[in-house]
């Protein structure tokens, strides 16, 4: 047994809200800063546990730049009591925060290769730090493709930023929606359908996929059909996370704990369990 005093990993630190930006009717982006000291470093793809006072704690991916900075950025969608409470926080309000936790996107290993981001819905948020990293270090990568699927044109996340990214000539961005009226000038269809149309070298591509699990299943199949080896495909898994540090057992996914073995996982490592129902 360890005799040395240890930091208690269950204790949240206190952060305060610096900025709130409403993204969608049910989705906000919060910028939070530690009440004392500096925020820890993090890797793209990692997550924090956000605590709404007296209500509870949820896992939310980091969606800001992983570069130096004083704050964490989180995009939160109201789906339950805790996310609703966090979404209602105003500038100056305090919340608890533990993290960052988990395994992130291997942006360094992807250097020299083409990079394909496949995002679905709110899945763009956990990919954003990786996208920002790749764009900030654009000369270290081959072709860069972002394929983003959303439910309909009014539910597009980070719409302004997508428009900014589209101005760049060194990244291919293709957006599609599941349903649209005739006003929409863009693509209609599912995001996996964009994969065969995208320009990248399947033999030298690292693909980062994030979105609802079914969307990831179809996307991985389309990447495979396009010739991308499964050990070059990374997905971000979602399971119930309570402790975030491998001690509570909730986020088990086959032999793994999503909180510490993931959330980002190399697909070939989980290919055998990914399609087992209710695993």
């Amino acid at each position: 047994m360890s005799a040395a005093p240890q930091l208690d990993p269950f204790l949240p630190d206190i952060y305060s809200v610096r900025d709130v930006r409403r993204e969608l009717p049910d989705t906000v982006t919060l910028e939070v800063a530690p009440k004392a000291g500096a925020r820890p470093d993090f890797e793209p793809g990692q997550f924090n546990m956000l605590y709404a006072f007296g209500i509870g704690e949820i896992a939310i991916s980091l969606s800001g730049s992983a570069g130096s900075g004083e704050t964490f950025i989180h995009t939160v969608r109201e789906v339950g009591a805790v996310s609703a409470a966090i979404s209602k926080l105003e500038v100056g309000a305090e919340l608890g925060l533990r993290g960052p936790y988990g395994a992130g996107w291997p942006v360094n290993e992807a250097e020299g290769s083409d990079v394909v981001f496949v995002a679905g819905g709110l899945g763009l948020a956990p990919l954003r730090p990786a996208i920002l990293h790749v764009l900030a270090n654009r000369n270290r990568y081959g072709r860069v493709v972002l394929l983003f699927g959303s439910r309909n044109p009014t539910e597009l996340l980070y719409r302004d930023e997508l428009a900014d990214w589209r101005q760049r000539l060194d990244v291919d961005i293709d957006v599609t929606v599941d349903h649209a009226d005739a006003e929409w000038r863009g693509n209609v269809g599912v995001v996996p359908a964009l994969i065969p149309r995208a320009a990248f070298d399947p033999t030298d591509t690292i693909a980062f996929v994030c979105g609802p699990e079914v969307m990831m299943r179809f996307s991985v199949a389309a990447l495979r059909d396009a010739g991308v080896p499964l050990d070059h495909v990374y997905v971000s898994m979602e399971r119930n996370m309570k402790c975030a540090i491998g001690l509570c057992g909730h986020c088990q996914f086959g032999p793994t704990f999503v909180c510490k073995d993931g959330p980002v996982m190399r697909f070939d490592a989980i290919a055998d369990i990914f399609s087992i129902r209710e695993i």
Binding site: G189, G211, M215
Partner: peptide, 17 residues
């Protein structure tokens, strides 16, 4: 078949709440 698969994914409305 590809379009049928896409349609299946579409009707799941995976980005819904």
């Amino acid at each position: 078949v590809q379009r049928l698969n896409a349609t299946r994914l579409q009707i799941l409305d995976v980005y819904g709440r």
